[in-house]
Each structure stands twice: as C-alpha cells, then as structure tokens.
C-alpha cells in the first residue's frame, strides 16, 4: 500500500500553524516522511459481525464481546451490522522513534507526527475498503470510525477486540496490561453499517459529535486552534 503522508496533516499533529515557514523543520518533515514510508510494515484486519443492542450494550453475535457505554450505543443505534478493524504500522516505526528519542528529540517529535499521519492514512484506506464492501452488501452509508477510549467506551475492550480478530497471531498487534496497543502506531475501531444515507455535517457539528465525548475536551489545545485529532478527515 502506498502512503502519501500529507505535510499539512503532519503540521496539524505537530500543532503548528498550517503554513509553517521554518525551513529546517520543513526539511526534517520531508526526511522523516521518507523514512516512515520506508519502515512501514502496514498490516490490517477487519471482520463483519451482526450485533444485538440490549440493556447491557452492543453484543457482537457469535463472539464473547459486548461493547458497553452510552456513546457507543448512540453511535451504532441504526446499525444492524458492524465491522471491527485493526491496523498497525509495525514495530520498526516504534524502534526508530526510540532511536530518535535518545539522539534527537526534534527528530523524535517530527517522526512521531509523520507516523501518526501515516496510521490515520492507513485507517482511511481500510475504511474505504470497508465502505465498498458495505455498499456491495446493499448498505447506503457507514458511520465514522469509533475507537476504544472515545467517549465512555472503555479502552479495556482492546484485548478482547484483538482476540476476536485473532490480531496478535495474524498481524502481530497486541495490547499491554495497561491497554496500550503494541506496536504503538496502531488503531482499532468499530464502524457501523447504515441503511440510510447520513447528511454531511459542517465543522461545528463535527466538534459536537466527536469532541464533547472526549476526556480532554476542556484542555484540548488542538480544538482551540480549530484543529481536530484522529477522526477528522
């Protein structure tokens, strides 16, 4: 899979202005982007599950998993089926970040931002693939990617979610006791299938939909500058 690593995305993760002029930094971003592209070992998995919405939460049929919380219930309330997805950039990216951590913090910061941009780009591609499948199955739309840790969906479901996808064995994606995905530059998410087309939202409703549920809503520097993390395209 080819990665572009868009500079404006990288600048967003670096929390700089969109038209940063510093030529050193710009040069470091180009170098880091090239390195990231070279080191990416992109692997992904997704699988469809019928769901049942109950008092307890969203139950994935034929599995052990129930997704709990108000926010995920709201997110999936119109979906008869969902996809679970997992993507990872592999361990070489983490290793290189560690190297720069020890030798140049500037490079570490920039490399990290490039890798984050890459993993989101990877997610977009997987989401597009899922969307095509959904349309083939007769669905009219899909929800945005919803990840453990958003809203009140606990990150404690990571382990079970990965187990259901057999992700440790198939793509080498694991989770630590502290629910941190390892390799670090990885994402898991839930996407709901929709039988009706949703209307597109403006900037403001994006914030309402995503950010209000976030633990860091009040302290978020990105949001104040009109930028958004993760789920924004």
């Amino acid at each position: 899979m080819e990665f572009k690593i868009d500079r404006s995305e990288v600048l967003m993760y670096l929390q700089t202005s969109k038209d940063l002029k510093d030529k050193n930094i710009i040069q470091l971003i180009s170098q880091a982007s090239a390195e990231v592209k070279d080191l990416i070992d992109f692997r992904y998995l997704y699988k469809k599950f019928p769901i049942e919405i109950s008092q307890k939460g969203i139950k994935l049929l034929n599995t052990t998993l129930t997704l709990k919380g108000k926010s995920i219930k709201k997110h999936l309330k119109k979906s008869p089926e969902i996809y679970l997805m997992a993507v990872t950039l592999g361990v070489q990216i983490d290793k290189k970040i560690s190297l720069y951590d020890k030798t140049s913090v500037t490079k570490a910061v920039i490399f990290d931002a490039c890798a984050t941009a890459a993993v989101e780009e990877g997610c977009d591609k997987v989401e597009a693939e899922i969307k095509r499948k959904a349309f083939n199955d007769g669905y009219k739309d899909i929800t945005f990617r919803y990840s453990p840790g958003y809203g009140d969906l606990s990150i404690e479901v990571q382990k079970e979610l990965l187990r259901i996808l057999n992700a440790p064995k198939k793509i080498g994606l694991t989770v630590s006791k502290y629910n941190m995905l390892q390799p670090n530059k990885s994402v898991t998410a839930v996407i709901g299938m929709l039988t009706e087309k949703t209307e597109s939202d403006g900037e403001f409703s994006f914030e309402k939909r995503h950010c209000r549920q976030c633990n860091l809503y009040n302290d978020c520097q990105l949001r104040r500058k009109g930028n958004y993390c993760g789920t924004k395209k």
Partner: peptide
Amino acid sequence: GPLGELLEPMGSL
C-alpha cells in the same frame, strides 16, 4: 505459545 504481550523495549513486559 506467546504470552500475548510484547516484551521490552517494544512493549512494557
């Protein structure tokens, strides 16, 4: 089989 968590330095185990 494997423990299911990554060992240091990639993981925290």
